[in-house]
Design a protein around this nucleic acid. Structure first.
Length: 284
DNA sequence: TGCAGTGTTGCTTC
DNA sequence: CGAAGCAACACTGC
């Protein structure tokens, strides 16, 4: 679920909320997660950063808590109480009676009395504690960060030009660019005016440039909107993102293209994923 | 009722 | 080797 904008939103918030705190206890109903308890209880949280869609929580003694939220995972900061076998938020706010609470599978108890909870309906999320060096090594295969200052057209086009897959799939390939998934690949191609099925290797210099130039604005706008909450994404405070209200392609099948070019947004399958595009201004 | 579809990734297959 | 297909899981909507 969470792509770069959603992960960036949570990381920015968590930096302010949990940096400097100690982890005092860990609860989980998933055996794999229960094992991390003895590795991190008593450790201090030094800092938090994002790499692609990964969240790295730096701990003392050179350990890193590596979290990938995959499809439906999201971290929330608050306070929950176990009631009748379920976790219930006891703070005022949107988490109070959010049905999402029933999917809490992991809780870190913090030294200020608050908790960091992982909500994950489909249980795909990855949470591991590794020596920092190892964690960084695991993420070595990630492509460049599209929002970094050194993300330039030359390196961007060089990687993409010789890929033989469809451009949408290439944009979602984490080793090509880090952080782009199904929603934002649709949005980037809509803004660039490129058909998602087009083979990357067939793109002309001018078309590559359009994609490159569309990438940053789409991601930045999504970060400003605090991400998309198509189904279950929540920010650290249990609030939904607003990008789905300003989307141009994703999830808009059958609606008029917002470019007012007379197109009706079409939905097709690409590599097993749904792709949305305007057949008028995104021609093959 | 049952089954296709869902924002990700990595393993298997060709 | 690179590209494509599918499974991991739980739930929703047609």
């Amino acid at each position: 679920m969470p792509e770069l904008p959603e992960v960036e939103t949570i990381v920015t918030d968590l930096k302010k909320l949990i940096s400097g705190l100690k982890i005092t206890n860990v609860w989980s109903d998933i055996p794999a997660f229960q094992k991390i308890k003895k590795k991190i209880v008593g450790r201090k949280i030094l800092g938090i950063e994002r790499k692609g869609k990964n969240i790295l929580i730096g701990l003392n003694q050179d350990k890193t808590l590596l979290v990938h939220q995959k499809m439906t995972g999201h971290l929330m900061y608050g306070k929950w109480k176990r009631e009748n076998g379920a976790w219930r938020s006891i703070l005022p706010g949107p988490m109070r009676d959010d049905p999402e609470n029933r999917f809490i599978h992991l809780i870190f108890f913090l030294s200020n009395g608050r908790q960091l909870a992982l909500c994950d309906m489909r249980k795909f999320a990855k949470v591991v504690v590794l020596p920092t060096e190892k964690a960084l090594k695991e993420l070595e295969q990630l492509g460049p960060e599209p929002l970094a200052k050194n993300f330039n057209f030359k390196s961007f086009s060089k990687i993409i030009k010789n890929k033989h897959s469809k451009i949408k799939s290439v944009l979602m390939d984490q080793s090509v660019i880090a952080g782009i998934g199904n929603i934002y690949s649709d949005e980037i191609l809509w803004l660039a005016g490129i058909h998602p099925v087009k083979k990357a290797t067939d793109l002309k210099e001018k078309e590559l440039k359009k994609i490159y130039l569309a990438t940053k604005p789409v991601l930045k706008r999504a970060i400003s909107a605090r991400g998309s909450s198509y189904i279950d994404y929540r920010d650290a405070f249990g609030k939904k993102g607003k990008y789905q209200e300003i989307q141009n392609a994703y999830g808009l099948e059958g609606q008029k293209c917002k470019k007012r070019d007379g197109g009706i947004i079409k939905r097709i399958k690409i590599g097993g994923r749904s792709a949305h595009f305007c057949p008028i201004h995104q021609k093959l």
